[in-house]
């Protein structure tokens, strides 16, 4: 039996998506076949419209459908604080935490010589003019080797400009048991401990 070419094409396109395993693409294709035409058209349009409408913000390189992204154009944000992240998804993750009121800068990657990504491939140059307004830059790249290397590179670059540079905390993630933490993380979690109540007469 030969499979219909349009079925084969769909399975091939679906299996290119990240996180779609070998069994999933076929199951997805059959699932889609059983959906009403309108659902397929909605998905297809959502794909095209997202591609048409979305682009990176010219200031912070976050994803937006406007001239300037929602964060950059929000006057209530603290414009003296810039949080540097790897990917647009990181902005969403931090926004969801509700703990941050400053601006962002999205690098769209990390320095990774092995993958041919040097500093010039990231949005580092447009960060520099933004620093004149900034009081503090938070380096919130991941704590992977590449994320750490990127943070060190940026620190060296920004330090001479007289801006406070800080690094997102290393430590135990929520839900962590000491026993299962690797030694390096545990050492960092101990040395980075935060005082929560002070000794002394003032108390």
């Amino acid at each position: 039996m030969k499979y219909p070419p349009s079925l084969v094409a769909l399975i091939r396109e679906l299996s290119r998506l990240p996180g779609i395993g070998p069994k999933s693409a076929q199951r997805l294709a059959f699932h889609l076949f059983e959906q009403p035409r309108e659902d397929i058209e909605r998905l297809s349009s959502a794909l095209l419209e997202a591609k048409r409408d979305l682009h990176t913000c010219p200031i912070c390189f976050n994803i937006t459908d406007a001239d300037v992204c929602d964060v950059c154009s929000d006057p209530s944000r603290d414009r003296t604080l810039i949080c540097v992240v790897e990917e647009p998804g990181d902005v969403i993750a931090i926004e969801r935490s509700g703990e941050y009121q400053g601006l962002y800068h999205v690098l769209h990657g990390v320095i990774s010589p092995m993958n041919g990504v040097g500093p010039e491939r990231l949005y580092i140059k447009p960060l520099l003019p933004r620093l004149s307004e900034a009081r503090e830059v938070i380096l919130a790249t991941g704590t992977t080797v590449e994320g750490e290397a990127t943070a060190l590179y940026l620190q060296r670059l920004i330090e001479p400009l007289g801006v406070t540079v800080s690094r997102i905390a290393y430590g135990l993630p929520v839900g962590g048991a000491l026993e299962y933490a690797d030694e390096v993380t545990l050492g960092r979690a101990l040395s980075g401990r935060q005082t929560i109540a002070n000794r002394g007469p003032a108390k």
């Binding site: 395993g21 070998p22 069994k23 999933s24 992977t144 299962y180 690797d182």
Partner: peptide, 20 residues
């Protein structure tokens, strides 16, 4: 077999999630 592997830096061994 075609497998989908999942790897975290914490774990020594990757995990097989799907196999065809």
């Amino acid at each position: 077999v075609a497998v989908q592997l999942y790897q975290t830096p914490q774990a020594d061994l990757g995990t097989v999630r799907q196999a065809a």
